[in-house]
Amino acid sequence: MANRPSPAAAARAAVAAATNVTRGLEQALISTVTEGVAKPDGRRQRWEKHKAARRTELTDGTIDAVRTLGADVGMDEIAAHIGVSKTVLYRYFTDKSDLGVATAVRFFETMLLPRLTEAITDDVDEYTLTRTAIGVYVNAVADEPNLYKFALTSPPSSAATADSEKLVAQLMTAALVLRMTERDADTSGAEVWSNALVGAIQRAVDWWMTERSIPVGDLIDYLTMLSWSSIVGIAAFNGSREAFVAAPPPLPEPPITDNGIEDTE
């Protein structure tokens, strides 16, 4: 029997991994501001801490501005809403793209990550876990349409989108490995499956945020249907790639109605 990580240990590992993603991105952004300014080490460290704190403060102000003024808000409007000059914004952010990435990082740190962490640490069955995690993500995005458009879907924010997907995939991988280990299943494909499902859900949500052609509950149902069917298929082979390739399951026959005619609706 393989060693089974406790739910608490797995959750801590997932949170630590996700936090490293957001901190790493934020640190990379901070290091680009006032680049080339020479300071003694002590002063530089204090300045870095000040920059990080000030960027967070200005990012929170930007989030409030976007919620109030809309996704197409400009730098002048953001600065006025926060109560600073545009020069101050450009002192801490190289451009609007930089501000968009910082906003995306803040969104995941403060709004999405805590909800996902709570979902994966709940002691529930696998189906409930799958549906809950999808619902958390979809509802977090659906509740913030302006913020989502400003921070995640504009072309300058593509780097933040990629890192946010990586964060969610890490959380999903941790949860998947934990549940599969409990079944003594092969977890070799866990990262592949997690990234594939997260990418598919992200693309579907991107489409839905633009079209809004179905209710949010229907979107969650369809995404759960896709994800759970994948998980059930993986579990049927206990995670074994070799077993699946050797005997792939056939496509089920269409259901038959009471009058003996195939039901194609």
Rank of each mutant, 00 (worst) to 15 (best):
residue 2 A to Y: 14
residue 5 P to V: 02
residue 11 A to T: 15
residue 12 R to M: 12
residue 15 V to S: 02
residue 22 T to Y: 09
residue 23 R to P: 09
residue 30 I to Y: 02
residue 30 I to F: 00
residue 32 T to A: 12
residue 38 A to K: 08
residue 40 P to K: 07
residue 42 G to P: 08
residue 43 R to D: 13
residue 45 Q to W: 06
residue 52 A to H: 09
residue 57 E to P: 05
residue 58 L to W: 01
residue 65 A to P: 01
residue 68 T to S: 11
residue 69 L to V: 00
residue 76 D to Y: 14
residue 77 E to L: 10
residue 81 H to G: 04
residue 81 H to L: 08
residue 82 I to M: 06
residue 83 G to P: 10
residue 85 S to D: 03
residue 88 V to R: 03
residue 88 V to Q: 05
residue 92 Y to V: 03
residue 93 F to M: 05
residue 95 D to A: 00
residue 99 L to Y: 09
residue 103 T to S: 10
residue 104 A to T: 05
residue 107 F to A: 08
residue 116 L to P: 02
residue 118 E to Q: 13
residue 119 A to K: 00
residue 121 T to M: 03
residue 122 D to A: 01
residue 124 V to R: 08
residue 125 D to R: 02
residue 129 L to S: 01
residue 132 T to N: 12
residue 133 A to P: 06
residue 135 G to N: 01
residue 147 L to N: 04
residue 148 Y to P: 00
residue 155 P to C: 14
residue 156 P to T: 00
residue 159 A to C: 14
residue 168 V to W: 08
residue 170 Q to N: 11
residue 170 Q to I: 11
residue 171 L to D: 02
residue 176 L to Y: 09
residue 177 V to S: 08
residue 179 R to P: 03
residue 179 R to M: 03
residue 180 M to L: 13
residue 183 R to E: 14
residue 187 T to P: 06
residue 187 T to W: 06
residue 190 A to K: 12
residue 195 N to W: 12
residue 196 A to R: 08
residue 214 I to H: 07
residue 224 T to Q: 09
residue 225 M to D: 12
residue 227 S to H: 09
residue 235 A to V: 12
residue 236 A to T: 14
residue 236 A to N: 13
residue 241 R to M: 13
residue 244 F to I: 06
residue 254 P to H: 13
